[in-house]
Amino acid sequence: MIELSGVRHRYQDREVLGGIDLRLTERRIGVVGLNGSGKSTFARLLNGLLIPSAGTVTVDGLDTRRDGPKVRRRVGFVFQDPDVQIVMPTVAEDVAFGLRGLPKPEVNAKVKAALAEYGLSGYEDHAAHLLSGGQKQMLAMASITVLNPSTIVFDEPTTLLDLRNRQRIADRIKTMPQDAIVISHDLDLLADFDRVLVIHEGKIVADCLPEAAIEKYVAIAETT
């Protein structure tokens, strides 16, 4: 469970998030908001990539301020642009990157299973930079899920994808065993989630079921 208590975050003099108290326990949680509303900052607070200027974020009781590496093992993060997330030259090597230290046969077995799960079997020795956008995002997801986190945070995972790849990623998010927190402008993706948060000007202005949250978000978009 992820819990945020009295969380505020500032960049220099500008407060980008304020007064956030939340317990995130649902399997599928969506986060929507206009550009610059603080969504990406919120996402990065959840696994300790950012430490809040005030307040605490805990994951299963572990404080992101003190236990960053342990938190990041429990909460994976998939970035909007997979090109910055893929760090090794070939597909199999990238999935194996986070498994350093494990015996080689175990690494090979985990990599093989992860690639099969994400439709990348046969691409083991393929250059990562030559994959399509959808395959890169699948690789980014495989590289995170192979580490077996209990929750995965997605920062706008479908923004750079065409309709077919968007559908593939959406299907994966819906069916994967991990909990998911998805930052997105893609309202269809969030339509059957358990809970949706609307962030506006650094505040949570709605926290409810998708239909009501999306209605609120559309109203904000039309009046801002």
Binding site: R44, N47, L49, G68, P69, R72, R73, G76, F77, F79, D81, V84, Q85, V87, F97, G98, S143, I144, L147
Partner: peptide
């Protein structure tokens, strides 16, 4: 972004 990704993937 790469620095963040390395952190997120447990490099540290």
């Amino acid at each position: 972004g790469l620095g963040e990704a390395l952190d997120a993937r447990g490099w540290e």
